[in-house]
Structures are given as C-alpha cells and as structure tokens.
Simulated assay, not measured.
Amino acid sequence: MDWSRVLAYGVVPGIALILAMAAGFLKYVDNSARDSATARIEATQAASTGTVALLSYTSDKVEQQLNDARNLLTGGFGESYTSLINEVVIPGAKQQQISALATVPRVGSVSADPGRAVVLVFVNQAVVVGSSAPTDTASSVRVTLEKVGGKWLISDFTPV
C-alpha cells in the first residue's frame, strides 16, 4: 500500500472537510450569539420606551398620547389596551383631571432571540389628580415583545 497516496487522497481531504465544517459551525454559533445580543439591547430599549408611553399622560392630551402609544403594541394586548384606555382611562383622566408620569429606573432582559424577547421593567409612576399632591408608586412589569416589520412591539404587559 502506498501511504503517500492514502495521505494525499484520503486523510488530508478528510481533515480539510472536518475543519471546514467546524469553521462553519463556529460561525453559525457566533452569529446566533450576536443576533441574541442585538435583540436583547433593542428589546430592552423598546420595553423601556414603550412602558413610559403606555403609562404617561396629561389630562389635556390624554387621548392623543395614549392613542399614539397604541402604535407600540401588537396582537391581543393591543386590542385590550385600546378597550381599557377608551372605556376607563381617557374618560377618567378628562373628568377628574388626572395626569401620570412614568419613569423606568431599571430594565433587565429575561430572554431574547431575534424575533421575541421578554424584559423585566421596574417602573416609578407619579399620578396627580386635579391639584392634589402627586401619589408615587413603584412596580415591576414583565413585558413580552415581538419583532414585527423590523420594530419591537409589546405583545404582553403583565404586572409582577
């Protein structure tokens, strides 16, 4: 048996194939990790911005502000939010001169992939009724987001 031929036509091409497959796999893993990291960053920003938009309004602009916030929502949550603001929040804010200001001191990614993410959002909200002093509350919300048309939209908003 001619070992130089076995080496030239069998072993070397086999090793080259194995190395090429390993490089392809490592590239796939690297791209997946980068996609998840990008999703995590984008989703936490969208959750923070969206939470502030959903929970902040002034009594004189409540209808415009909360209806604009609907553009940040998708699915069944968008429908239930629309019902809530139209039936309860907007009429109450106008009638009782209620204003609310939400801030987000902290957010944390629970999970993220390129199409769906879950973010824990810590919220501080100051509510003013009429000319009374503000009432401050702190809470946390589990925000689920889905990427729709290149934008992260809120699909669920669950207090925890």
Rank of each mutant, 00 (worst) to 15 (best):
Ala133Ser: 15
Val121Asn: 10
Lys27Phe: 13
Ala33Arg: 08
Ala112Asp: 01
Tyr28Gln: 04
Ala93Tyr: 09
Ala102Ile: 02
Pro114Cys: 08
Gly75Ser: 02
Arg116Gln: 03
Arg70Gln: 04
Thr74Gln: 02
Ala33Asn: 09
Thr38Leu: 11
Ala100Ser: 13
Ser32Lys: 13
Pro134Val: 12
Arg70Val: 09
Asn124Tyr: 05
Ala43Gly: 00
Thr74Gly: 00
Ala47Ser: 11
Val29Trp: 03
Val62Leu: 07
Gln45Phe: 06
Leu120Val: 15
Ala126Glu: 11
Ile98Gly: 13
Asn67Phe: 01
Asp30Ala: 04
Ala47Tyr: 10
Ala33Ser: 10
Gly130Tyr: 15
Asn71Asp: 03
Val119Gly: 03
Lys27Ile: 07
Val118Ser: 13
Gly130Gln: 14
Ser131Pro: 09
Thr135Gln: 15
Gly92Phe: 06
Thr58Lys: 13
Ser80Gly: 00
Ala133Thr: 14
Gly75Val: 02
Val89Gln: 07
Ser83Ala: 04
Thr135Tyr: 14
Thr51Asn: 02
Ser99Thr: 15
Asp60Gly: 01
Thr44His: 01
Asp35Gln: 09
Leu84Thr: 12
Asn86Lys: 15
Phe122Glu: 02
Val127Met: 04
Pro114Ser: 11
Ala39Tyr: 05
Ala46Ser: 12
Val107Asn: 06
Asp60Gln: 07
Gln96Glu: 14
Gln125Asn: 12
Lys61Cys: 05
Ser111Phe: 12
Thr137Glu: 07
Leu26Tyr: 13
Thr38Gly: 01
Tyr28Cys: 05
Leu120Gln: 13
Asn124Pro: 02
Ser48Cys: 06
Leu54Asn: 05
Phe77Asp: 01
Ala126Asp: 14
Leu101Trp: 12
Val128Cys: 10
Asp136Ile: 07
Val107Thr: 15
Leu73Cys: 01
Ile90Tyr: 15
Asp136Trp: 15
Gln96Asn: 14
Gln96Tyr: 15
Ala37Pro: 01
Ala102Gln: 08
Thr82Ile: 04
Pro114Gly: 09
Thr82Arg: 13
Asp136Leu: 11
Ile98Gln: 14
Ser109Glu: 04
Leu84Trp: 13
Ala117Leu: 08
Pro134Gly: 12
Phe25Glu: 02
Leu101Val: 11
Ala37Cys: 00
Ala69Leu: 03
Gly78Thr: 04
Ile98Met: 14
Ala112Lys: 02
Val29Gln: 08
Asp60Asn: 02
Ala69Thr: 05
